[in-house]
Design a protein around this nucleic acid. Structure first.
Lengths: 373, 373
DNA sequence: TGTTGATGTTCAAACGTTTGAATGGTATAC
DNA sequence: GTATACCATTCAAACGTTTGAACATCAACA
């Protein structure tokens, strides 16, 4: 038992222990084509010895020699955003199938870290990069170096096809329309809307979808019942905003029976705000979110929301990237825009309207129906 | 402008462009001690050319040569567990300060992936490994190879000091006691308890803490009001369990005014269950969780809970690991157990008891007080 | 004239792996 | 007897970087 005092077990350790050359051992352990020519007994002996010594090939040496790292970088703008988790899962699913490994880094919404990690991905010779970011950041020289080293890139969460970067995102416009139509179908006539921050890519198309659906239903959205979240990157800020705007809605004195919130956290903030004012959801007012993150599902009432096919988006992004990696050198195809369709998830925060809650005469709402999900 | 058709820009590209040797360029760009002897003009010329060509040192070649990777592996049992995010953030905070990089991998509660990724960390020559896992997994040959290659390891979320592995976790017993004492202080006499799954490390100490506090207060916990979550790894299962047990509590016909749930998701399940039965929280029944994850904060009512100092735990784990990495080779100090104190976070899901809700005579609860957090 | 010392730069070996080419066998075919 | 083919294994160079040692030049000192 050759126990090394320091450092890792290497090929030559195994070779020495087997009385064979490094080449033979390498060929066998990496299952190179040549290993067909190595006697089965020898192969077995080598494998056994490798296991016995606890040998693990050094990925750095291997990558250096093979000139391939089997690595894809995943740069999330904020990994603590519940949005990211399923996307990453989808990415991993695709990469695993292709024997690739994802190097995940989290910029924590800090521009400095974003640069730092991008550089790191370059230094680790990621063969491609997926960026998950719905915030609009100014892309200065970030991506220039990536191109200089011709590393393919795909972005999830916003449209950068104008920059010739393949982009994967949900059809926000359709989602916004879906949400509005849901409330319309339930019979709501007066709906308050909380729009997303300016600097968030999703904000505009969602708002357009909402307007389209309202228009189609012959509904006018009251400007005084329209609000917009400030440009804050803190993920918690959506909740605060929803809470604040709920109060403002009530203070406005204008009647409304439903609220379309920009995302689920905002919706939860609205629920909190309405509830603190003594109103019931959905008895007095329906609330609809967007994204379908965990808190929306486990809150009571469960938040009706628009689900993004996040995992599928991750999967798709990874597949597109792998294709690009494969044909690197060849002419890159035109950067495509992939828009996936969102899905309405009906929970118990939305129901047919009863009456505008101008008073605090609260009655118990009908027995909750089981969540469909 | 030497634009390479394929492959990355290397040192020798820069050297050629500068009419200097690779050594000089390396010395300058890596800011080696010798670079003091290089003329400032030369240094500047090299740096400019490197930037111009988009040069980034190859971490694989560098690691190979330096025999250091500046990399710490972080193996999370389930990264989508809200528990993990702050821990990872704490880890990164510590590593960044030490110029280390964290390689994060997510076992997604699958044993197979756990092994796979552990191997991967070994292959990438992580200088140390932090495991985040509160589930009790059988450690077969997983850690054997890690030891064979003498890679230091620290675990977060459970006590493995018996296996000579430094461990960082919250003082679950104190936390359980804190939760129980909170309800007792509010005046609750009859409290239902939902214990954690057998295979979860935290379960037992929390339960002991609860019993201790009950005992100290002269309270007896009714066995018929004690439940235990099944061994399910699906993070959503806590919610389902809470929901189910809430119904069972009510069906038992035994009076209770408070529920201690194993964790926040379970607490949210209980709230849902009570609510569906027409009861109000905290008017008819108080509910207390554990962990303080995002959904607990944004639900309405906000869930009173026991906060784990997760970020601090991550920070501490990383610091311990870095120490161990530094003195690798030297005698490892005895594996220490770090238990951090939890903190009670009072929100609006707990209040003084009023009456046992044996009927559905629901009244509106007192105006909600603002959350302290 | 030789020694020391500083300055500015390069040589060459190494890190652990892969792999095309080469080696020395043994068997089969002509 | 010599090609041809196959088998089992090894040689040696390369991947991109770092770094101890060496080199060359010049100045000052003994």
């Amino acid at each position: 038992m050759t126990k090394l005092e320091r450092g890792h077990v290497t090929l030559s350790d195994v070779a020495r222990a087997c009385h064979l050359s490094v080449s033979t051992v390498s060929i066998v352990l990496s299952e190179a084509p040549l290993s067909r020519h190595v006697a089965e007994a020898t192969r077995e002996r080598i494998r056994a010895m490798a296991a016995r010594l606890g040998y693990h090939p050094d990925v750095h040496a291997r990558s250096l020699r093979r000139r391939r790292t089997q690595t894809i970088g995943v740069l999330a703008y904020d990994m603590s955003d519940p949005f990211c988790i399923p996307v990453v899962r989808g990415i991993e699913e695709a990469l695993q199938a292709a024997q690739y490994f994802s190097l995940q880094v989290n910029a924590q919404t800090q521009r400095m870290l974003f640069d730092r990690y991008l550089r790191m991905l370059l230094e680790r010779r990621a063969e491609g990069v997926i960026v998950i970011a719905s915030w609009v950041f100014e892309e200065t020289n970030l991506l220039a170096d990536i191109e200089k080293n011709n590393v393919p890139i795909v972005i999830v969460g916003r449209d950068l096809t104008a920059r010739r970067i393949p982009s994967v995102l949900v059809d926000n416009q359709a989602g916004g329309a879906l949400a509005m139509r849901h409330l319309v179908d339930l019979g709501h006539q007066s709906v308050a809307v909380i729009r997303g921050p300016d600097e968030m890519f999703d904000s505009k198309p969602r708002w357009e979808g909402i307007q389209d659906a309202a228009c189609a239903a012959g509904l006018r959205i009251d400007r005084r019942l329209t609000f917009q979240l400030p440009n804050q990157v803190d993920p918690r800020s959506g909740f605060e905003g929803g809470l604040r705007f709920a109060n403002e809605m009530l203070a406005s004195g204008i009647g409304f029976t439903g609220v379309l919130a920009f995302d689920d956290l905002t919706a939860l903030g609205v629920v909190r705000g309405l509830s603190e004012a003594g109103l019931q959801v959905p008895g007095d007012c329906s609330v609809v979110g967007f994204d379908d993150i965990l808190p929306a599902a486990v809150a009571t009432p469960g938040i009706t929301t628009i689900r993004q096919p996040l995992q599928k988006m991750g999967l798709l992004a990874a597949q597109r990237l792998l294709e690009a990696v494969d044909q690197r050198g060849g002419r890159q195809p035109k950067a495509r825009l992939h828009q996936l369709v969102p899905e309405l998830v009906v929970r118990t925060s939305s129901a047919a309207p009863r009456s505008f809650p101008g008073n605090a005469n609260i009655r118990r709402r009908a027995a909750l129906t089981k969540e469909a999900d």
